[in-house]
């Protein structure tokens, strides 16, 4: 299919039970869909967990993904978000010899700060929209980041 492929965020509410995550990821790999990022955590005071999956595909593929997800027995609900607030976190390790005030200022511009200072390295974190996080990671390249970790996106419908 040559239809336009676009990035979508899908939230899935599932029963907290053994192997539920592999049911979801098996479905994606088995049917040839992409997972760009995936986050999972329990929903407080319930027997459910919420998965946020960033994926891409044509309108038809995205429709199939949501339908196939819904067919899985432990899946309670599938939201294919149109209008959403989306955030992602990233943590970056810098050598302590870098310009810390520059790094701190940059972090603040991306809803973040320096969260840990050690003898040789500092750890900074930011939390922002995935696109902005990407931008942040580009900008800080000049400060010789030693390690970068991204959390994957979480999203709520407006």
């Amino acid at each position: 299919m040559t239809e336009n492929s676009e990035r979508r965020v899908i939230s899935v509410i599932v029963v907290n039970e053994a192997s539920v995550l592999s049911r979801i990821t098996d479905l994606f790999s088995g049917r040839g869909y992409n997972i760009t990022s995936l986050t999972v955590a329990p929903i407080p005071d319930s027997k459910y967990s919420r998965l946020t999956i960033a994926t891409s595909g044509s309108v038809r593929v995205i429709e199939q993904i949501t339908k196939q997800l819904h067919k899985l027995i432990p899946v309670l609900r599938v939201y294919e978000h149109a209008d959403l607030v989306e955030k992602e976190m990233a943590m970056v390790k810098f050598p302590i010899t870098e310009n810390l005030s520059d790094i701190n200022t940059l972090c603040e511009a991306y809803n973040g700060k320096i969260v840990n200072v050690g003898e040789n390295v500092i750890i900074a974190m930011v939390a922002d929209e995935p696109k902005r996080v990407e931008n942040f990671l580009k900008v800080i390249k000049r400060y010789n980041p030693k390690e970068i970790v991204r959390s994957g996106a979480v999203a709520l419908e407006r």
Binding site: R60, E63, Q64, K67, Q68, H70, K71
Partner: peptide, 8 residues
């Protein structure tokens, strides 16, 4: 009966 079969 299977919504995923429709418009697949």
């Amino acid at each position: 009966i299977d919504p995923a079969s429709i418009s697949k």
